[in-house]
Write a protein that binds this DNA or RNA. Structure first.
Lengths: 231, 231
DNA sequence: TCCGGAGTTTGATACAACGCAACGTTCGGC
DNA sequence: GCCGAACGTTGCGTTGTATCAAACTCCGGA
């Protein structure tokens, strides 16, 4: 359990515009909890009774089809709000969130959402801003899915994870949380077989280096070329 | 040019919670404009300086890839707000909106957004609600695109348009605005050739009846079966 | 009335990706 | 240190869908 200290929140976007005393107030009303890898924080369709802030770890936000297939809609990294369905007047969560690694999150009852946004204008504007960014991201993923071939989609998915969580190592940039072939196929709408083949080929070419649930991008530039984004 | 009368807005979701005098105030500050079929209301990347309400007609909201392909992200029908990037603290529009049929829209400068939401709580909550619905829709389209085969995606796209704009005719339910094969392929991430083949086959089976830019669903139930949604 | 463009239909061909299947590897628990 | 489960790899046959190509239909304007 981390110490609940003002400095935890002071640098985070939703709170960076607030004063220390205000942060203290917000923090005093939060519940902190730890989630093991693979655990659900909340599930699609359940009552949206709380909203959350990820302090440590990484999450996958997943939607399921009636047929049982699942799709990873986006990832959440530390410092981001999630499960903010109440901000959009929803009474159930539209997706499931799963801890991709051991994670720690704060949460508040939804009743506090309107209180926070009313009392702290900086909180409201920053929250809606991240919401807008997230909407834009999903639209971008959608257009990518609709227009690009599988190879490019997988390359883009890797780059997105690297951008969000990449940290330098000796051999390249490493994705900070566990990722399986199946996970990548759930992000890109393909099969784990195809992903496995692609990663094998890229490993042979020295572009990535992957162990079991762990991926290091050794040649980001070549991956960008493969992803087909032209600047 | 329509008469700008309170009754225009009184029944619409964003305004239904307001009083007549308040609606009058809002209306007095709106600009009304007509858009011919194929005209852009605003374009992706341009300064988001106004927000809009569609009074009559239908719009396509389109995102383009660097490679020149385009994807129809969603449709707007009468009574819906659109171009509400300012609500999410965006300074440019994230997509382009095109009139799918001759359309009429009101618009206001973004500076009024904060004024409206502050002064009329009902307007704010309803606006964020539609935003939440739209986010959910896009997530659903994304999962559909990632998991379903082309035939099901096309069936779903037709059903979505029917739900949004369908009106009864002698032979079935008709989509209220012009739709080309190319349009459908832009919604489903396939080619106009494949869409043409599918529609021909369905027409032979008596499920749809399509003329040039005009589609009537004659057997909605069979189309639902084809779409593969199980209730 | 004729022309041209926009939209549609249809056929033939090619290949990327899926589905299935079998085997290999790593990891964690007992 | 062994075992079983989870995850990954690889091969092969198949098929859905894109691609290329060509012709057709409708509609509006000159």
């Amino acid at each position: 359990m981390p110490k609940l200290d003002e400095s935890l929140l002071a640098d985070l976007p939703p709170f960076s515009l607030l004063e220390r005393s205000q942060i203290r107030e917000i923090l005093d009303r939060a519940v902190s909890r730890r989630y093991e890898e693979g655990t659900a924080i909340f599930r699609e369709g359940h009552d949206a009774d709380r909203f959350f802030l990820l302090l440590d770890g990484y999450l996958r936000v997943v939607r399921s089809t009636p047929g049982g297939d699942q799709v990873i809609v986006l990832h959440i990294s530390p410092g981001q709000l999630f499960g903010i369905a109440p901000a959009l007047q929803r009474d159930t969560y539209p997706a499931t969130s799963i801890a991709a690694a051991e994670s720690i999150a704060l949460s508040w009852p939804v009743s506090l959402w309107s209180e926070f946004t009313a009392r702290y204008p900086g909180f409201a504007s920053e929250s809606y801003k991240t919401l807008g960014q997230r909407l834009g991201q999903i639209q971008e993923t959608l257009t990518e899915m609709a227009t690009q071939a599988v190879e490019k989609r997988v390359a883009c998915a890797l780059l997105r994870m690297v951008n969000q969580s990449g940290r330098k190592t000796g051999e390249g940039i490493e994705i900070a949380f566990p990722v399986t072939r199946q996970n990548i196929s759930d992000m890109t709408g393909t099969t784990l077989h195809t992903v496995s083949r692609l990663l094998s080929a890229w490993q042979k070419d020295g572009i990535v280096s992957s162990t079991r649930k762990h991926i290091v991008v050794t040649d980001p530039h070549r991956l960008v070329v493969l992803s087909g984004v032209q600047g």
